[in-house]
Design a protein around this nucleic acid. Structure first.
Lengths: 223, 223
DNA sequence: TCGTGCGAGACATCCGACGTCTCAGCCCAC
DNA sequence: GTGGGCTGAGACGTCGGATGTCTCGCACGA
């Protein structure tokens, strides 16, 4: 194995074993390089790779630190990976989202706070009757993110965040080409919110399913 | 932004835009570095980072290539990320798996082939009545992977693969400390298989839920 | 006491050199 | 003519050092 890969494994090992804990500062590059038995250049490749996936946080002029290792932070890397997928796999991502989002919405029904409910209501009100497609899609993302956060599962939340990205373009496209998509989306959002306010997990789940299925159906028919 | 980060974005852009396609070979390091306007060292950091998450495949003595970009390959990086999570977030991962796995199992009920059903049967038969805990857990992973592959969604499959890793230890631990866990697991596997053979999606979904919920419940009570 | 300026420390980037590996083409033996 | 081994070009792997840039903490002066 290449020395850089070894270094990646060793640093990973130090973190997993607990020798390095979240927030800890690593030895300076030259010291760590000597410690692991490689050059600073090669070590930097390892550090750079780990920082791309948010394991390490390098701050110029300061030092290199272990991140908080929050699921949210780490799964952020997922969206980077997902960006590489072409449209032909969007359906598969959407299918997964169709599984997760209703479940998250149902979970949220039991846990969402009054405050959060009001915030979501305000958000929908603010959008008005005839928003632009871009506004609608942005609001769509924000609306679902707010709900999923209330599910109380940060892994679930990050995963959905990552999966929602690639379907964004598809949703915009849909809004532009399907006439009643905008009004239907607005209606479905209201219905989901109402179900959450009623603490009706099953209704919330169903509306969320309908919401995503309609996008899926449209996408399937137009590919 | 740092030049290396710029390079990462540019390479990503070249792939997403289609200028570089799966399997394509990149210009040699020195050329690409000149093209992107940075040194070979800095470029190498970018390439190393992208190869860690399986976007690029560098072969010493040969060249650097774009990988197949299969969802499977890219989401493999997920398991690397997931490795960093401590036991305190295992429950959240398990909760997500509890959502996805039953859905995948239900999907498989409609699509799984006779051949695959027979393979799964053989696998369970081969295990015998009183396997060791390690054998059981390995078989468990294999069994579920086989089913999820039959769901026909490679994104879903890879995601579950990534999520199953971190709970492996927990399952072994359970097998060692809970007496009837082994026999109960064997029984549940048989039940899932029977439901699949009957093409009964709902039964398959329910058994899969039960199967995971029992692990979840045990884990929750023993933390 | 507060703000500014300076300097040490750490990462960012680059250059050039040499080692190692892979592949393809040439040459020789069969 | 064909197969196998050898060799050289090309590409990645690794290294050491030099210089630029940024951040933080401390000392100084208003």
């Amino acid at each position: 194995m290449a020395v850089t890969d070894e270094a990646i494994e060793k640093i990973k090992g130090m973190i997993v074993s607990g020798a390095l804990r979240p927030g800890d500062r690593l030895p300076k590059e030259s010291e760590l390089a000597a410690e692991l038995g490689l050059s600073r250049n090669s070590l930097r490749e390892a550090v750079r790779a780990l920082s791309l996936i948010r394991i390490l946080d390098v701050r110029q002029g300061d030092g290199t630190y272990v991140t908080s290792l929050d699921p949210q932070l780490l799964l952020e890397a997922l969206s980077f990976v997902v960006d590489f997928h072409r449209d032909d796999t969007v359906l598969e991502f959407l299918a997964v989202r169709r599984i997760l989002e209703p479940a998250a919405t149902a979970m949220a029904a039991a846990r969402i706070s009054e405050q959060q409910l009001n915030a979501l209501t305000n958000q929908l009100d603010k959008l008005g009757e005839a928003p632009s497609v871009e506004e609608l899609v942005a609001c769509d993302l924000e609306f679902h993110r707010g709900i999923v956060q209330s599910s109380g599962n940060s892994v679930l939340c990050s995963l959905l965040d990552g999966l929602s990205g690639p379907t964004t373009r598809a949703r915009i496209w849909r809004g532009l080409t399907q006439e009643d998509a905008v009004s239907r989306t607005l209606h479905e959002h209201r219905a989901i919110l109402a179900a959450l306010r009623d603490r009706d997990a099953e209704a919330a789940r169903s509306w969320a399913t309908v919401h995503i299925a309609s996008v899926e159906q449209w996408l399937r028919s137009s590919l």
